[in-house]
C-alpha cells in the first residue's frame, strides 16, 4: 500500500468561486522523498493546506488516502495525530505562548490521541534539548514565544525541530529552503536526511535544485495550474533548473 495516494483531487476556495486544484493525482511511497516543483501560484501550498485540512478550501472531488484511509473528512488535529506533518511556508507567530509549552502541548496532544500517556517532563526536556542542539537552535530561542521575533531562517529550523519531535509518517515541507542561507540549508537538510526511513515519506516543495542537492529526491513532480503535469527522476529537477518551467508547462497545456 502506498503511503499517500491522491486521486483526482479537486479543490476551490471555500468562500469564492475560484478553483485551485484541478483533478490532481499523486502517489508517494513509503521511504520515498518526492519533490514537487512548479511556478508560483500553481497550487503547491494549496495542496499542502488541503491535505492538512485547512478550512479556507473546499474539496469538491477526489480523495486522499494516508495509509489507505481517506483523511479528507478528518479534522486537522486528527490528521496530525495520524502522522501528517506540514512544515509551513510561513510559520505562524503565537505571542505569549512559550516554545516549550507549545512543543509539549503538541507532543502530548498527539500521544493522547494515539492512546499513550503524556511524556514525562524530564524525558521531554532531554528530547527537545538534544534535537534543538542538532538543529543549531539556541536555548534562548526555546525560551521565547513561538516564532515571535525569529528570523526567517530560525522559523524554518523551528519547523524542522517540531517535525523531529513529532516523528510523522508523512512530512510535507513547503518551501522550507526559501530564506535560508547555505549553512542553514545544510542544517535543515541534515535534519531531514536523519529522519529518512523505510516507513516515512516526504513531500518536498521547492523552487530550487539547491535544496535537492542536499536532500536527494527519489522522484520529481511538476505541478502546474492545479495538476501534476510531469513526473520524472532527479534529473527532471536539473532540467527545470536549466530550462525553466515555460517549456514544460507550455507542452502540457
Amino acid at each position: 500500500m502506498s503511503l499517500l495516494e491522491i486521486k483526482n483531487l479537486t479543490a476551490k476556495l471555500a468562500d469564492e468561486d475560484k478553483q485551485i486544484l484541478n483533478g490532481l493525482n499523486l502517489t508517494v511511497e513509503k521511504g520515498q522523498v518526492a519533490a514537487i516543483m512548479g511556478p508560483n501560484g500553481s497550487g503547491k501550498s494549496t495542496l499542502s493546506y488541503v491535505l492538512a485540512g485547512r478550512e479556507d478550501y473546499e474539496v469538491t472531488d477526489g480523495e486522499a488516502l494516508l495509509d489507505g484511509e481517506n483523511i479528507l473528512e478528518l479534522s486537522p488535529d486528527e490528521r496530525a495525530a495520524k502522522g501528517l506533518f506540514l512544515a509551513f511556508q510561513y510559520p505562524i507567530e503565537i505571542p505569549g505562548v512559550g516554545q516549550m509549552t507549545f512543543l509539549k502541548a503538541a507532543v502530548n496532544a498527539q500521544r493522547r490521541k494515539n492512546g499513550l500517556d503524556d511524556m514525562p517532563t524530564p524525558e521531554f526536556m532531554k528530547l527537545v534539548n538534544g534535537r534543538a542542539k542538532e538543529l543549531g537552535i539556541s536555548p534562548d530561542m526555546l525560551r521565547r514565544s513561538v516564532n515571535v521575533g525569529f528570523s526567517g531562517g530560525e522559523k524554518k529550523r523551528n519547523e524542522i525541530l517540531q517535525m523531529a519531535l513529532l516523528q510523522p509518517k508523512l512530512a510535507i515541507l513547503d518551501e522550507t529552503d526559501s530564506g535560508l542561507d547555505i549553512d542553514a540549508l545544510k542544517i535543515v537538510a541534515d535534519g531531514v536526511n536523519a529522519m529518512r526511513s523505510p516507513d516515512r515519506g516526504f513531500v518536498v516543495i521547492t523552487h530550487y535544485q539547491r535544496l535537492l542537492d542536499y536532500i536527494k529526491p527519489d522522484v520529481v513532480h511538476v505541478l502546474s495550474a492545479g495538476r501534476i503535469i510531469k513526473t520524472g527522476g532527479p534529473d527532471l529537477a536539473l532540467e527545470l533548473e536549466a530550462k525553466g518551467y515555460a517549456d514544460i508547462v507550455g507542452k502540457a497545456a
Partner: peptide
C-alpha cells in the same frame, strides 16, 4: 490552524493561545 496541524484540538488551541 497552526496549532491544530500540530495535533491540538480546537478547544486546546484556544486555551493555549
Amino acid at each position: 490552524f497552526y496549532c491544530m496541524q500540530r495535533g491540538l484540538t480546537q478547544e486546546e488551541a484556544i486555551a493555549l493561545i
